[in-house]
Design a protein around this nucleic acid. Structure first.
Lengths: 155, 155
DNA sequence: TATAACCTTGACGTTGGCGTAAGGTTGAAC
DNA sequence: GTTCAACCTTACGCCAACGTCAAGGTTATA
């Protein structure tokens, strides 16, 4: 019996995502990754989904610079998404689905707002930096001219 | 004798920047703010420049999510900028000026690169989120239709 | 000159996000 | 059936970025 198809041990997940095994266990502890299945002896078995998840978490961390607690909220919204997508068979509890959908929408909108705001501020900063760089090159040119035109009377 | 014109005590700076007094002292300790002048009894006296500085630091922290150590590098570059700008009188040590200019340019370019990369990733994320929101609204509509068209056989 | 509001330094405490070491278990290979 | 890397849990450690006292000095105002 081979391994279950497409299941990865923690070491490989760590390698492929660029985080440590400790971090993966930590995320699990904190509820950012759902507890993976285990093989007989207790070794964790991850899926490709999990890998994507980790990458997503890291992007959120790096880009938005928000706490893991907040990220948990966001990835929970993702989870809802997957659930809704998978059991796309609305024979049961429409009200609940509507509820989940509502919450997921809210979280996503919040995220969107953050991203929007940050991109805007980033843009401002970008232009500022561009201006500054222009200024620097101008000054450098002036320095150059000063040295070539003026007397090289030293040394 | 009134206060020196335009000098602010730590409390007011704290209020206006939204950080605590502790944070201001902390930044000073870490070299992110140059030690302000003091009045007779030792009270710190800040300038409007300092206020801008603090705001800048916070923007960098919030937007780029980088460490204060890295931010120090950046604001040091700012310092160089001011120095160059103020004593715009290149009678002394051109070589040094060139050097400073070079370093400031390098730091600024590094910063620019970071900002560029992040903006791009942000954009990606933005489109992703937009798509997701569209999906959500579509699903919600489907749910609505299901409820209106199907039997409202409850209650 | 009293007293409240503001400030000082010093030092220890806290929180998030992991690092790391210890001691034991598992699994594939030989 | 033993070896050995990869994994397990437990638990203490660590750094950044401040928070939070404590004990006292300063300044404006009555």
């Amino acid at each position: 019996m081979a391994e279950k198809q497409g299941s990865l041990q923690i070491g490989e997940v760590a390698q492929r995502t660029g985080v440590t095994q400790r971090t993966l266990r930590f995320y699990e502890e904190k509820g950012l990754l759902r507890p993976p299945s285990r093989m007989g002896g207790g070794f964790r078995l991850y899926t490709e989904e999990d890998v994507k998840r980790v990458n997503h978490i890291r992007r959120l961390q790096d880009l938005l610079g928000i706490s893991l607690a907040d990220i948990k909220e966001m990835v929970d919204a993702d989870e809802v998404l997957r659930e809704l997508r998978s059991q796309y068979r609305p024979e049961s509890a429409i009200a609940e689905k509507r509820n989940q959908l509502q919450k997921a929408t809210a979280v996503t909108e919040a995220q969107f707002a953050i991203v929007k705001q940050k991109t805007e501020q980033m843009r401002e900063m970008e232009t500022q930096l561009t201006e500054r760089l222009r200024l620097f090159t101008r000054w450098k040119q002036e320095l150059d001219e000063l040295e070539t035109k003026a007397a090289p009377t030293r040394g």
